[in-house]
Write a protein that binds this DNA or RNA. Structure first.
Lengths: 156, 156
DNA sequence: GTAAGATGGTCAACGTGGTTGACGAAATAG
DNA sequence: CTATTTCGTCAACCACGTTGACCATCTTAC
């Protein structure tokens, strides 16, 4: 039977709480810097769109959701001014999704704020311990759950 | 500027991925054991209801959501057979929410499966490293984000 | 004892982030 | 030229959350 002092007892909640703490802090600061509308899910989307733009279908694949869900998320981010849709001259079916200047501003600020947050963790825990946590988690997480091909922006 | 090899770079995604790995494994096993309908959010609710039952309003407060949201979640869990509503003889306004036998079964199985998952992490990483991760995370997470007053069941 | 206020549950409308299924238009394979 | 695949979208639906309103009931003050 589980006892509260056994190693690992509170691990799941602590992992979630750690993530939430980082993301909450990030968004509180982003709101202060002129991006109060930016929600956690939007960060992954903006990052996945990338500098060259992409399509709704491709976006869905990258994010692991249906193309319809990706399309609706793009709708919202277009309404907020973070993304824009342009016709693809080479393929009349496709509509390129691109980040706007506002979207790039949000992305850059997010990266900068996250730098500060990371520094805070490193300053408090020490670089060794932060690196050790990362190594341990990497060992426990299957590759398909943790795909770090879109670094720099984390739920911001 | 952030570089991928800097300590803390991938930390947020790894924290989230670690949590998701644990919860995914837990639910895959719970589905195998006859509880395929149980979703991550349900675990917190069942745990918050507790052995003595509670009311929708109180449940909302415990979970940090509105009483209406708590009421709708109770509706779903009642429909699934995990909870039941009974009139409070002492107060005609109140309706006690209680776990059913099915709910208790889900709770117990969830606790048992989580025990195994924790053992797996401890076996792979070592008790020291698991304890170190927990200590570090405890230090970085504000008390109001991490409230471990409902231990034993984690998103199951 | 009654009037006034606080509390519990519910209804309605809405927002966000997902799902499937269907379907037309355009590109591509044969 | 036809058959198939792909892209975007529409429509319905679900889970989970929000506010505001409302009625019934319990509690408090007078």
């Amino acid at each position: 039977m589980a006892t509260p002092d056994r190693p690992g007892f509170a691990l799941p909640l602590l992992l979630l709480a750690g993530f939430r703490t980082l993301v909450d802090d990030l968004h509180a600061e982003l709101a202060r810097q002129g991006h109060p509308e930016l929600r956690p899910a939007h960060g992954f989307v903006l990052q996945a769109v990338g500098p060259d733009g992409t399509t709704a279908s491709d976006l869905g694949q990258r994010l692991g959701v249906s193309k319809q869900a990706a399309g609706k998320t793009v709708d919202r981010l277009v309404a907020l001014g973070y993304l824009e849709r342009v016709d693809d001259p080479a393929d009349a079916r496709r509509k390129l999704v691109r980040t706007t200047a506002t979207g790039r501003d949000g992305l850059h600020r997010s990266a900068a704020v996250f730098d500060e947050l990371r520094d805070r963790w490193v300053a408090t825990l020490g670089a060794d311990r932060v690196a050790a946590i990362e190594d341990d988690l990497r060992r426990m997480v299957p590759a398909d759950v943790f795909r770090l091909d879109v670094p720099g922006w984390f739920g911001g």
